[in-house]
């Protein structure tokens, strides 16, 4: 009997560790997705675009893009969720070694319920707002006026690391995995014990 309890405890600890890791990694993934540059621009229009922050300048003069301002507003609660997820994940990992209260697991589970929505919102922000903003930014400033043809160097748009992180696959699979693991962990910890 004692051996069975020990095995059960070890399994739960392992599951909590996995749950903590999943939450932490998901939180980090979301933080990187929001903070790392989605696109980098060079040339007459230069700067970086991430969901949480953007800095664009035309010949060194800063410019504001309405759609990117909206993306920034949308990203604020998502980054809060990401930070909360990371903190909860680390707390869960730390709680493996010592006795803990079930409230942390319950909070982790309820937070993880919002992960698919947060990831979807982040991905949609990129899809709708950032793509719209890219359409607004004139990559080629060349124009023909009464003075003649003004030929500017073309701006270059390069995808940044967050472009990979905010893909459909990474926006759907990790939140579902994190949600699933925390749900199983909570079920075993509270309702099945």
């Amino acid at each position: 009997m004692g051996g069975q309890t020990s095995l059960k405890n070890r399994s739960r600890k392992t599951l909590r560790l996995i749950s903590g890791l999943a939450l932490s990694l998901y939180g980090l993934l979301l933080i990187f997705s929001l903070m790392l540059p989605l696109y980098k621009l060079s040339g007459p229009i230069s700067g970086e675009i991430s969901l949480l922050h953007y800095s664009l300048a035309i010949f060194g003069k800063p410019i504001t893009i309405d759609a990117l301002e909206r993306a920034r507003t949308l990203s604020a609660p998502i980054i809060a969720i990401a930070i909360a997820s990371s903190i909860l994940g680390i707390s869960l990992i730390a709680s493996v070694a010592r006795p803990h209260k079930g409230i942390m697991l319950r909070a982790a589970f309820s937070l993880s319920l919002a992960f698919p929505s947060a990831s979807a919102l982040a991905y949609l922000s990129r899809l709708v707002l950032v793509n719209y903003a890219l359409g607004e930014i004139p990559m080629d400033l060349s124009a023909t006026t009464s003075a003649g043809a003004l030929v500017f160097q073309q701006s270059q748009l390069l995808p940044g690391p967050a472009a990979l992180l905010l893909s459909p696959a990474l926006a759907t699979i990790p939140p579902v995995i994190a949600l699933g693991i925390s749900a199983i962990d909570l079920y075993l910890e509270i309702y099945a014990s």
Binding site: F59, D66, R70, T73, E136, P138, T145
Partner: peptide, 18 residues
């Protein structure tokens, strides 16, 4: 994000000559 911004067209001052 939808309501609080006036939704104005972005005015990007491009250098020009006439």
């Amino acid at each position: 994000a939808i309501v609080q911004y006036p939704g104005r067209a972005d005015e990007i001052q491009v250098p020009g000559a006439t």
